[in-house]
Amino acid sequence: MGKTSDLTAVQKTIIDTLHKEGKTQKVIAKEAGCSQSSVSKHINRQAKGRKKCGRKKCTSSRDNRTLQRIVTTNPFKNVGEIHKEWTAAGVSASRTTTRRLMKDMGFRCRIPCVKPLLNMKQRKKRLTWAKDKKDWTDAEWSKVMFSDESKFCISFGNQGPRVWRKSGEAQNPRCMRSSVKFPPSVMVWGAMSSAGVGPLCFLRSRVNAAVYQEVLEHFMLPAADQLYGDADFTFQQDLAPAHSAKTTSTWFKDHGIPVLDWPANSPDLNPIENLWGIVKRRMQYARPNNAEELKTTIRATWALITPEQCHRLIESMPRRITAVIEAKGAPTKY
């Protein structure tokens, strides 16, 4: 009867009751029918609480703060580099412990998002632009025709869907993705508004000011007629050299088309970027064999874009602007 684990539930209840009444351990042991040492151990354990089991931690709170500072200062270091720097600070811990503590702190190893580099001048201009447009309504944004170019390739590298295959089918052509050194690609110009998308233009040569003005003449103007009719609209474009050329500015003035002022390196503010992403995701299972088949696939996928999808993307403009203001001009999640 020397161990508290030998005590029955009834005995433990008796001990707890009599102890609260102020009885001595000798009296309690006699009433409960157990040894005095069992009573003492039970009372002490109840008072102190059960001791924690397991191995004692090898790092202190200060050590953990040092680790968090190392990871936060340079999040692109791998576990080995982080562990080396941490142990150099006088901490004795294994690489496995380092990885586990980083995970406990909430750090996860992920592929980083790629965003355009913004210098301080560009960030200030983005912030100023966002503050200037923060009170625009959905009706005002619906009058804007957003435009952009995008490159489509037959091979999308290592991205795309995974494959379900059985053991030994790794070399089966049905389970393989083809790749070439210089995959055929096409450059596409497109435009959208809250009312839907306009016709696509496949660019055959490098886009200079002259080529871009032909695109505006033969594709942007028909898109404006299709999406706006006789209503007024504002055209959006980025600051590519062909777009900001003096002859291009003259073209817009001659045609009486206002152009929305636009900050540099700001694809996160252009909803058509998300539209290109939708098209490319829908095409990830397609396997065009040449550039012409690729164009056919792009046209067919673009034709499936609904006005509702475009409207939802345009409606995100106030949220994009708020995100830029909160980020003080830095890149956003969009």
Rank of each mutant, 00 (worst) to 15 (best):
Q25V: 13
Q25A: 06
I28E: 04
I28K: 03
I28H: 03
I28G: 01
E31R: 14
E31Y: 15
A32Q: 08
A32G: 06
G33S: 12
C34R: 07
C34L: 08
S35E: 15
S35I: 13
Q36H: 13
Q36L: 11
Q36F: 13
S37Q: 15
S38G: 08
V39Q: 05
S40N: 09
S40W: 14
K41V: 04
K41R: 12
I43G: 00
I43Q: 02
N44Y: 06
R45A: 00
Q46M: 02
Q46L: 03
K48L: 05
R50W: 05
R50S: 01
R50E: 08
K51G: 04
K51L: 05
K52F: 06
R55G: 00
K56E: 11
T59Y: 06
S60H: 04
S61C: 04
S61K: 07
R62L: 09
N64M: 12
R65H: 12
R65Y: 09
T66I: 15
T66D: 06
L67N: 05
L67P: 07
L67Y: 11
Q68Y: 11
V71W: 15
V71D: 09
T72Y: 14
F76N: 09
F76Y: 14
K77I: 14
G80K: 10
H83N: 10
H83Q: 08
E85H: 09
W86H: 06
T87W: 02
A88S: 11
A88G: 03
A88I: 07
A89V: 04
G90Q: 08
S92A: 02
R95C: 12
R95K: 13
T96I: 15
T97H: 13
T98Y: 07
R99Q: 12
R99I: 12
R99C: 10
R100D: 14
L101K: 12
L101Q: 13
L101F: 14
K103S: 13
K103I: 12
D104T: 11
M105P: 03
F107N: 02
R108D: 05
R110D: 02
R110M: 09
R110G: 02
R110F: 09
I111E: 09
C113K: 10
V114G: 00
L118F: 05
L118G: 00
M120R: 00
K121Q: 00
Q122G: 00
R123T: 00
K125M: 00
R126N: 01
R126Q: 01
L127K: 03
T128D: 11
W129E: 01
W129R: 00
D132A: 07
D132E: 11
D135L: 07
W136L: 10
W136V: 06
D138E: 10
D138F: 13
A139K: 05
A139C: 05
E140T: 02
E140K: 07
S142Q: 06
S142P: 02
S142Y: 02
K143C: 09
K143T: 14
V144F: 08
V144H: 03
M145H: 03
M145D: 02
F146P: 03
S147F: 01
S147T: 07
S147R: 00
E149G: 02
K151E: 11
I154V: 15
I154C: 05
S155M: 12
S155H: 10
F156G: 13
G157W: 15
G160W: 13
G160R: 05
P161F: 08
P161A: 11
P161H: 07
